[in-house]
């Protein structure tokens, strides 16, 4: 059996670095978490109670993908939760059973932070594929 990604020290360490880089390029960044599909935290930056957030991310991703499948409109690319004070952006790591969820305030545009998050997700995908 292969090691679950949240137990893979290489993925956990390098995932944390990539999330930190997302923080550094987005001034509106509040916090982010990288989770397995079944809701275990792999890496996180800032914030607190990531365990609870990781489970919520997993549930929300499954619901979003379930709705997309039900409607037969292709696979879910990302989920955006827009609130009065900020955005939650959630997207699947390409080709992986991992989900990135990042929270931003409204000091930057949704387009900017979405673009940055997508780029981070792609980098995480490459990192996992080349991990030990």
């Amino acid at each position: 059996m292969t090691t679950a990604l949240h137990h893979n020290k290489d993925v956990v360490a390098r995932g944390g670095v990539l999330l930190t880089e997302l923080d550094s390029i987005c001034t509106s960044f509040l916090y982010a978490v990288l989770v397995t599909d079944d809701g275990f935290e792999v890496a996180s930056v800032s914030g607190s109670d990531h365990e609870r957030l990781a489970s919520m991310v997993s549930s929300l991703q499954a619901l979003a993908e379930g709705v997309a499948e039900e409607l037969k409109i292709g696979t879910s690319e990302y989920v955006v939760l827009a609130t009065e004070d900020g955005h939650v952006i959630q997207l699947r790591i390409p080709r992986q059973q991992l989900v990135l969820s990042a929270v931003f305030n409204k000091s930057e545009t949704l387009g900017k932070v979405l673009s940055a998050s997508k780029s981070t997700a792609e980098q995480i995908a490459v990192m996992v594929e080349t991990s030990k």
Binding site: T36, A62, E65
Partner: peptide, 11 residues
């Protein structure tokens, strides 16, 4: 049934 299942890493 509508299912929201994910790969189980907690075997």
């Amino acid at each position: 049934p509508v299912r929201t299942e994910a790969a189980n890493t907690d075997r």
